[in-house]
Structure formats: C-alpha cells, structure tokens
Design a protein around this nucleic acid. Structure first.
Length: 685
DNA sequence: GAGCACTGC
C-alpha cells in the first residue's frame, strides 16, 4: 500500500506533535496511575496542574472560560476539584459538569470520589436518566448528562443552586449541549455571578468565544470571556495518507491491515468503517485471508464492534488476545468517542461516517454516508496514541484531508425539532425562531416542527403551548407523537399497552438479526408476529419477555432477542408510567382489543399515514411521496392497504419503519383538522 | 422484493 508520510510536521495534528516533547516518564505516570504515589502526588503530576492557579484566576475574573484541551489532560476530573478547593461550593452551592454520555458521567464521578476519598453519592455524585446518585444536602460536585441538566431547567429555570457549570466535550455539539449553550447564555444575563466553563477538544474555541462575549466595544480588555489551552498527554501519532484516492475503501482497509500485520511491530489495529455490512464483510475477509499467512507468522484476529451487536459480542473486543496474536477491531463511529479499546497502536480510517439528517420538506430522515470532518479524523487518529506512539493510516489523500470541513454539522441543524420547540416554549421562550442558538437551525426545520405541534394540538392558533396537553407533551421524555398516544390512551382504555409500545419504539435493535439469512431467525420472529403489524408484535415480544421469559438474558438469546434493548424498554416503561400517573391518566388495559390500540396509535400518528399502490410500494397520504416497507417489518411480505408508520429512513430507498395496518376511516374520524384540507388524496373508502 | 451511524431525556 502506497502511503505518504509527511515530513516533520504532520498536517492538522499539531497537538499530537506537541506531545513528542514530553518525557516518557511523565507519560507513564499518566497512563498507569502509579500506585507508589499518593493520590495527591498523582494529581499534581497531571498536565493540567501547571495551569491550576491560572484557571482559577480566569474563572474568578471572567463570566465564561473556554478551555481547550485534548483527552487525557485531566480537565474533567481535576477542574471541578480545583473549583471545590477554591471555595466555589461553599454555602451549599454546586459545581456541575455535564457529559454527552451516561457512562462518562458515572465513571468520571467515580474516579473523582475515590480521588477525594469520599463515598460516591455524597460530596461527589452523578445524575443520569434512570439513575440519580447524589445527596441534595451534601453533594458539591455533580456530574450529569447534558440532557439531565437541561431537564433541571424545567424545575429551576435559573439553575440557582449551581455556582459553576462546566460543559464538557462541547465540541461534540450534541443536541442537548447546543440547547444548554443557548439557555446558559440567557441565564447569565439574569445571574452575572454564574460561571461557565466550556471545554472543547478542538478548533472551534473561537466560535464559543464570540458566542459568549457580550463586549460590544473595541476594547478587548472589557471582554467577559477568556480562552486557555492545555497541553495534551497523548503519544505522538504518525499520519500516513494515500498517494492516490482509492476505489474501494473496504478492500484498501483489509490490505492495509495485512500490510501492518506483516511489516509492523506488535500492537492492535482499529479500523473505522461506516456500517454493519462493511464491518461484517471486512471481518469475514480478514478471517479468510488469515489462513494464507505462513504458519510461523503472528496470528491475526478480527473482531466487529457496532451498537446493534448484543453485549456478549461487544465485550469480546476487551478480552485479552491469545499470545502471538494481533487483534483487529473493525468498528463504526462507536469507537471514535463512546468506546475506548486498550492496546490500539494502529488506526485505519476510511474517512467516512454514516450520518442521520432530517429533511424538513418531506419530514423524512436519511441515513447517508458522508465524509468525516477534520476534527473526527483527528479524534480517530488519536485512538492510536493512547498507550504508546502509534500510526494512523488515512485511506484518502492529504489533499482531500484539507478539503474536509473543520467540524461536523451540529445535530441541532439536522434534526426533527418538535421536541426542542416544545421544550423552549415550556421554558417561556415564545419566539423560538429568534432564540439565540450558537448555530441557529434552518428556519424550515423550526417551521416544520411548529406545524406538527399545531396539528397535534400542542400549540394554539397563536403558537402558544396549550394547557394541559402542550405542557404535558413538553415534559414527557418522548417524541410528541408518542407522547400524544400515551396521553390519549384514556379514550381507549389502553394505557398499559401504549406504555409498552412507546417504550419498545424508544429502543432499537430489539431483534438480533444474523448477518447471513437464517430460516431459524425468521421462524423465531414469526412466533411473536401478528397480522396488524409491528407495534402489536413488539407488544407481544415485551409481554413474553416479562412473563414467560422472566426477564432472562438466556431466554432472549435463544430467541434472537436483544436482552440489553428489552431491559432498557423495561426502565423506559417504568419512567413513562410515572409521568402518566402524575398526569392523572388511568392505567388500564384493553386486553386484546387491537382496534382500540390501533385507533389510539392513529390519534398520534395520523400525519404518518400511507396507502399501498398496485405495485406494492406505498405513497404517503400527506405529501404523496413514494415509500417502501422496511425489510425488518412484519408487514414486509404482507398485503397492507393502509398503514401508519413511526418513521421514514432513507437509505437505498425511503423505508417506513414500525408499521401498523389501519382503517382509513380512522384518519378522518380522529384527525379531521389535518385531513380536511387534504381530501383529494383520500379516496372514498 | 431484501436492510438499520451514534447518543440522550
């Protein structure tokens, strides 16, 4: 494989290069917390310690401090402790630190509690969905998912108990991070004493600076924002580019892996691809070609990792490989930030990612393979430098690297905003189109969301939240259409059924689909299937799981069911039930009355209706768009004249997912306001 | 007639 290795300075990885100056001694201290050193000595050995006083000074002096630092510099664990030591938690005040992922919130909190030698849940706690581990009277440092902090603004709009709020991993720009960034700016106007710390790993520090700086004069000494850069603690990673673009990155990835295997010293390989198909193919090929290696050579062991894989298989990547064997982990983006695998020295990056985008014109989502950003490329390469100096092979030219965008498009600019609009309205922000977002979403996205909410009667003619429906939908931690079927369930005495359906729809990959067609799998799946469609089928799966299956992992495994997904559905159902009880919705069961269940579904999903055409394809009732049944649906092989669907995802075609057969008369009966003006598309029935 | 990146409340 022809790779070009840049001279002394690799493009776009100045941070990696800086690390080269560091002595190995320091690096070892960082990687393995040295058991001979006291915890306090270890803390002082972290690179961030040198900047401790300066950071505390900046937080004191400026309303907002932007901290730029690579993974491993210790900001998530140390900064809240510094603030605590400096008195920011005196008088019952709390320092909050948000994380985009649940596991991160828990593991960082756990680490900090042990560094402070306190019990997790006392002085140091965490708060994530389904799990609160803090003491309101005792906790001074609280780690939480950004979604949880956002929820707290419903109860206390000014977040008055917090003295400092640190938004960690802000460069990832998750939906909730962006909402918080805007809301915190608003809160700061009312609470000038509130301190914000925005922590980002890359390039976009200036944008955060501009967003929070309220100084309108030319005198920069009046700025109320400051930036500080921290040195990283990664090992250097040599970047290699292709000399010529490749035709087939899957094939090139496989060849590169074997080149590394034959020519390079020991160390595991991590390959980034875009999806399950590519991963399964690559794992299969490596397995095949490994048989051609000379018997004396080191062995090679390919392992797949993606979110849809059941836990048992996911855990295999963390197992110790046998002696004289090189592990090759073939991953989706899950390995970019969510999962860290030890022992990786070589990274192969295909340069693409599968990204979900929402088209406001059609209301359809698409899942497309797009080039990654420079920030992603850097993050992927960095995965090779966690244990020792590593190498990253980018399956694209240096020239194409420079053409990549700096960062990915923030989630808020490519999502269905129905829930976002509801949340903002619930916070009293009436003119959502003028809300101060760091990067405002396109107006079409907002308008589409407003239209949907109006049709659901969550908003009135003046765009105000209706009471109680709109307010209850805003509080519900589900999509408004799902929220509507839960709140309407009293009309059909089917709250029990709707709770299960809503919980099951909120989790993915309930069935573990084998990579090659399997008659046994189809047979097992058919045992739960009902002719009405997927919603009631998933109701059956869930009920079987809790009754006959006794919530057991083994039972799931034998039936191609994903235990992790079903357990999650169980938690979500419990949570949703608490909301329904609070909203005084009677928790009743309609038994096997599938008409009641389906009519209730229509009361929330009337906008997602489709009619079958003579050729077997479908047309949406609302926009007359061509749609197809997703092969994972129970209705894939059946005749279904009229259906409602949960969502449309365009991949190779526009596929409807989660379908249920309906009587078209229900559409005009339950949503006359929506279908009145669209009579033309509803033929006589 | 044949396929689903990743989070989060």
């Amino acid at each position: 494989m022809a790779f070009w290795k840049p001279g002394t300075v690799a493009p776009g990885i100045s941070v990696d290069r800086e690390a080269e100056k560091e002595t190995n001694e320091n690096l070892v201290t960082f990687v393995n917390y040295d058991t001979n050193l006291s915890i306090q000595q270890q803390r002082k050995g972290l690179p961030i310690f040198k900047s401790r006083d300066q950071i505390l000074y900046l937080v004191e002096q400026y309303q907002t401090t932007i901290i730029v630092g690579q993974t491993g510099c210790g900001k998530s664990t140390q900064l809240p402790q510094y603030l605590h030591e400096a008195g920011w938690t005196v008088g019952g005040r709390i320092v909050a630190c948000t994380q985009p992922r649940r596991v991160a919130a828990v593991t960082v909190a756990d680490r900090v509690a042990s560094e402070m030698n306190v019990k997790l849940g006392n002085e140091v706690g965490y708060s994530i969905r389904f799990e609160e581990c803090y003491d309101p009277n005792l906790t001074s440092i609280k780690y939480m998912t950004d979604g949880m902090l956002f929820r707290e603004t419903f109860l206390d709009p000014l977040l008055t108990q917090y003295s400092v709020i640190m938004i960690d991993e802000a460069h990832e720009r998750s939906l909730y991070t962006d909402l918080l960034l805007g809301i915190l700016k608003k809160i700061q106007k009312r609470r000038p004493e509130l301190r914000l710390i925005i922590s980002s790993a890359t390039l976009d520090a200036e944008a955060f600076y501009e967003f929070y700086n309220t100084n309108t004069t030319n005198d920069s000494s009046k700025d109320n924002v400051s930036i500080i850069s921290l040195e990283g603690r990664m090992f250097p990673v040599d970047i290699h580019y292709l000399e010529e673009p490749c035709q087939d990155y899957v094939e090139t990835a496989i060849q590169t892996a074997f080149d590394i295997h034959v020519k390079e010293p020991p160390g595991d390989i991590l390959i980034f691809l875009t999806g399950r198909d590519e991963i399964d193919k690559t794992v299969g090929e490596i397995f095949q070609r490994a048989t051609t290696l000379p018997r004396s050579a080191m062995k090679i062991k390919p392992l797949p990792i993606y979110a849809g894989l059941p836990s048992e298989q996911q855990l295999e990547i963390f197992e110790q490989t046998p002696q004289n064997t090189r592990k090759v982990v073939v991953a989706t983006n899950i390995a970019e930030a969510s999962i860290t695998i030890g022992g990786i020295v070589y990274v192969i990056d295909c340069g693409f990612v599968k990204l979900r985008a929402y088209n406001p014109k059609t209301g359809m989502e698409s899942l497309t393979v797009v080039p990654i950003s420079k920030a992603s490329a850097q993050q992927r390469a960095g995965r090779a430098g966690r244990v020792m100096p590593g190498k990253a092979y980018r399956l694209y030219t240096e020239d194409s690297f420079y053409k990549l965008r700096d960062a990915s498009i923030p989630e808020i600019q490519r999502s269905n905003l129905a829930q976002v609009v509801l949340h903002l309205k619930a916070l009293g922000i009436d003119n959502v189109l003028r809300f101060d977002f760091m990067t405002p979403p396109p107006a079409e996205l907002m308008i589409r969301a407003l239209e949907l909410l109006y049709s659901l009667k969550a908003l009135d003619d003046y765009g105000r939240l209706t009471m109680p429906l709109g307010m209850q939908l805003a509080e519900f931690p589900v999509d408004p259409m799902l929220g509507k079927i839960l709140l309407d369930s009293y009309k059909y005495q089917c709250a029990e059924e709707m709770l299960t359906i809503a919980a099951m729809i909120s989790v993915q990959n309930v069935f573990v689909t084998p990579s090659s067609p399997s008659a046994e799998f189809e047979e097992e799946k058919r045992k739960f299937a009902v002719e009405e469609g997927d919603h009631i089928t998933s109701l059956n799966v869930f009920n079987a799981f809790v009754t006959r299956g006794k919530k057991s992992a083994r039972w799931c495994h034998q039936r191609y069911l994903n235990f992790r997904a079903l357990s999650r559905a169980l938690s979500i159902r419990e949570q949703l039930k608490k909301y329904l009880v609070r909203f005084d919705v009677p928790i009743e069961s309609c038994g096997n009355d599938t008409v009641k269940i389906r009519k209730c579904l229509v009361s929330g999903y009337f906008a997602h209706a489709a009619k079958m055409q003579s050729d077997g394809s479908f047309r949406s009732v609302r926009d007359n768009v061509e749609l197809h049944v997703h092969p994972s649906s129970i209705l894939f092989t059946r005749n279904a004249p009229w259906v409602i669907f949960h969502e449309v995802v365009s991949t190779t075609k526009a596929f409807m997912r989660e379908l249920t057969i309906i009587d078209p008369a229900w559409l005009t009966e339950l949503a006359p306001h929506f279908y009145e003006i669209r009579k033309t598309s509803l033929p006589a029935h």
